[in-house]
Simulated assay, not measured.
Amino acid sequence: MAVKIHPTAVVESGARLGEDVRVGPMCYIGPEVEIGDGTTFGTHCSVTGPTRIGRENRFVGHCAVGGEPQDKKYRGEHVELEIGDRNTFREFVTLNRGTGSGGGVTRIGSDNWLLAYTHIAHDCVVGNHCVFSNNATLAGHVSVGDHVILSGFVGVHQFCRIGAHAFIGMGAFVNGDVPPFVMVAQEGYGRPRGINAEGLKRRGFDAERISAIKRAYRALYVAGIPLEEARTKLMELAVESADVRAVLEFVDSGDRPLLR
């Protein structure tokens, strides 16, 4: 199907638009932008590059996509933003490109839902099937796994990691790594408050898997033992649980302290 560009929109020479792309009123598409089939832009969206956007994404309105990183060290290096397929970006979402010193690319996966005023800073990596509620903000170099939910007004400190299936409660400030499956609630800075059991049930985790994850959580957060002892316990539990192995691998692979 043909591309549809509103008469008030500006699409620079060099931009590459797939089939059935729709560009709404007062939008701007820069010269180093590639947009996949079926992607749509509402009013007043801007896309600068280098930026690559996949298929069937929806930018509702006033989104700022592919802007320069908000980093004083940035000196105009060739840096990029990559976006997968079938994401929804609501009003006033901001997505920045990477930095030369941070890997050069900000990456967002597929099938995510980013609500109004969400901000994804430079060099972040976001997985698939995530939900970021209004005003959720990632500082630079944050990594977010699949099926993560960030509630409204969540703030994540730079270089932190959030493991798959984690749930961050409304208004929590995250300044440490959050292991997979963990639920975090607001208490000044966010604090672990159990596992995301309800979310896991909705995604088909059976009682045995959830019980194993609960045992891993108790070892990390409830037993009151040093992290090295908790790690030993996780190694024992991981023998019979792939989910616990995922938690153990997360614990072993980070540079920042765990949120505890």
Rank of each mutant, 00 (worst) to 15 (best):
S133A: 15
C130N: 15
S101E: 14
H119C: 05
G140Y: 09
W113G: 05
G104R: 01
H122Y: 08
T106A: 00
G100D: 05
L138R: 07
T118A: 13
V126S: 06
H119L: 09
L95K: 01
C124R: 02
N96E: 13
A136Y: 09
N112D: 15
H119A: 04
T94Q: 11
W113K: 09
T118D: 12
H122V: 08
D111P: 09
C130Y: 09
A136S: 15
V142R: 02
V93N: 02
V126P: 04
L138T: 06
V142E: 00
G102W: 07
G103S: 03
R107G: 02
A136I: 11
G109N: 09
S133P: 00
F92I: 06
T94N: 12
N112K: 11
V93Q: 00
R107P: 01
A139R: 01
F92P: 00
F92K: 10
S110Y: 11
G127I: 13
H122I: 10
D123W: 11
G103V: 03
C130V: 12
S110V: 10
A116C: 14
G140H: 07
W113Y: 15
H141G: 07
V105C: 11
V125P: 01
T137N: 07
G103L: 02
G100Y: 07
C130Q: 10
L114T: 07
V93Y: 00
C124G: 06
T106S: 08
G102N: 00
W113P: 00
N128G: 06
A139P: 05
I120A: 00
L115D: 04
G98E: 04
A136F: 11
N96Q: 14
V131C: 09
L114I: 12
F92C: 13
D111S: 13
R107S: 11
A136N: 09
A136V: 10
I120W: 02
S101P: 01
W113F: 14
H119E: 08
T118W: 03
T137M: 11
V142S: 01
N96M: 07
V126R: 07
R97M: 03
N96W: 08
T118N: 15
A136R: 05
V126W: 03
L95I: 12
T99R: 04
N128D: 15
Y117W: 15
G104C: 06
V126M: 08
G102F: 05
C124S: 05
T137W: 01
V93K: 00
S101K: 13
N134S: 12
S101T: 13
T99H: 06
V131Y: 12
H119P: 07
N96G: 05
S101C: 00
N134W: 04
H129E: 14
A116E: 15
R97H: 04
L95S: 06
F92Q: 12
H129T: 02
V125G: 01
T106C: 04
V126G: 03
G140I: 09
